[in-house]
Computed example of a mutant assay.
Amino acid sequence: MRQVAALLAAAFLLAGCGGVATGTREAPTALALSGPATARLTDTDVHPVVTDPTPELPVTVRSHDGAEVTVSSVDRIVTVDLYGTLSEIVFSLGLGDRVVGRDSSTGFPSAANVPVVTAGGHDLNAEAILDLDPTVVLTDTSIGPPEVQQQLREAGIPVVFFAPERTLAGVPAHIRAVAAALGVPSVGEQLVSSVDAEITAARALAPEGATPPRLTFLYVRGSAGVYLMSGPDSGADAMIEAVGAVDVGTDIGLDKPFVPITSEGLLNAQPDVILVMSEGLESVGGIDGLLRIPGVGQTPAGQSRRIVDVADTDLLSFGPRVGRTITALAKVLYEG
């Protein structure tokens, strides 16, 4: 996720934390978590909703970049985005056996043997993709450089862009768009129904009638010197809300998805729990290293060492497994 760090740092370096916590609040009564934990999916693999679907082709779809793209074959699919979401959707649609190339963020077991076509972490490798002779490339603007995607189009390969946003509300539309481009819209509807059911069941795990815990997501990359706190539209806010908690970045009035961490901002926010990505936590030296970041150790979360790490490929992917991610997080918070 090195490119994520660079993008976030560039986009939000000048943003301030703002906002002031007011009044007092009762101690949370919903939390069972008493210390550090890892929110692990009980099942990390992707399971297709159908086997061996029959695509109805050709189809012409409007790519997210505005181009009209005709897909005549899905025999050799390349899926590339920053989070591995597109690979997850294609495998869930039952077309995983046709994926011949993937990004390095695709982390579920079924895709382990598919060749990686990204270089230097998250940069597209045009030569590697062309060598696979793909019949269609699925991508978005979260990955690049854009010259590579254009080069693929100039080589005559259908390249379909999808919306790069990753939100809980956007999951159904994302699935439907991918299914339409691959000629399996009815399978897409089956997958949407399955994912919606998992999300609904996961949301029900949050206790009712208790004071909701206050959570914040910190994006940290020690090797790159990136230390950011999340706010509205970060993606993390949707996951926090889904488990019945308060996203403190939104609560204290942040107006950017990510801002640099400051002691003042964290002390205003008063999070009961801090979320981090697993590799990010490792990059700062684990729990003790995270607590040395100014302000972190003085929060209720820091004082109680209530730090929850989630796999980098799970927390913000917003693919078909998102209900499982919410479930894993809710169980850590409320079952201890």
Rank of each mutant, 00 (worst) to 15 (best):
E127W: 04
D123A: 03
Q150L: 15
G121R: 02
G120F: 01
G121H: 00
V136T: 15
S142W: 05
T135K: 06
D123W: 03
Q151F: 08
I129W: 01
P146M: 13
E147N: 13
L130S: 09
L152G: 13
H122D: 02
L138E: 10
I157F: 14
G120D: 04
S142G: 08
E154Y: 07
L132C: 02
Q151G: 10
V148F: 12
Q151D: 12
T139S: 06
P145H: 14
T135P: 07
S142I: 00
P158S: 09
Q149E: 15
E154D: 15
D123M: 09
P146K: 14
D140Y: 01
A155S: 15
T135G: 02
G120R: 05
G156V: 03
P146R: 07
A126P: 03
L130Q: 01
T135W: 02
A128C: 02
I157C: 08
I143S: 13
T135L: 05
A155Q: 13
D133A: 13
V159K: 09
Q151M: 11
T135D: 05
Q149V: 06
V159P: 11
P134H: 07
D140R: 00
V137E: 10
L130C: 06
L124V: 09
S142T: 13
I143D: 07
V160Q: 09
F161H: 12
L132R: 15
V160C: 07
G144H: 15
G121A: 01
G156A: 02
Q149M: 07
P145E: 09
N125L: 03
V159H: 08
F161M: 08
I157D: 09
G156L: 02
T135Y: 08
G144Q: 08
P146C: 00
D133V: 06
G120N: 05
E147Q: 14
D140Q: 00
D133W: 02
N125S: 12
T135V: 02
N125W: 04
R153M: 08
H122P: 02
H122S: 07
V136C: 12
A155W: 13
A126I: 01
P146I: 14
I143C: 07
P134L: 05
L152Q: 10
T135M: 04
L124Q: 03
I143T: 15
N125V: 03
L124S: 04
L138G: 00
A155H: 10
N125A: 02
E127L: 04
A128S: 13
P134M: 06
P158K: 04
P158M: 09
V136F: 10
A126G: 13
G121I: 00
D133T: 08
E147T: 15
R153D: 14
S142K: 00
V148E: 07
A128T: 08
E154A: 00
V159C: 10
D131L: 00
Q149W: 12
L152T: 06
I157E: 02
E147D: 14
V159T: 11
V159M: 11
D133C: 04
Q150N: 12
P146D: 10
Q151E: 12
G144Y: 15
Q150A: 11
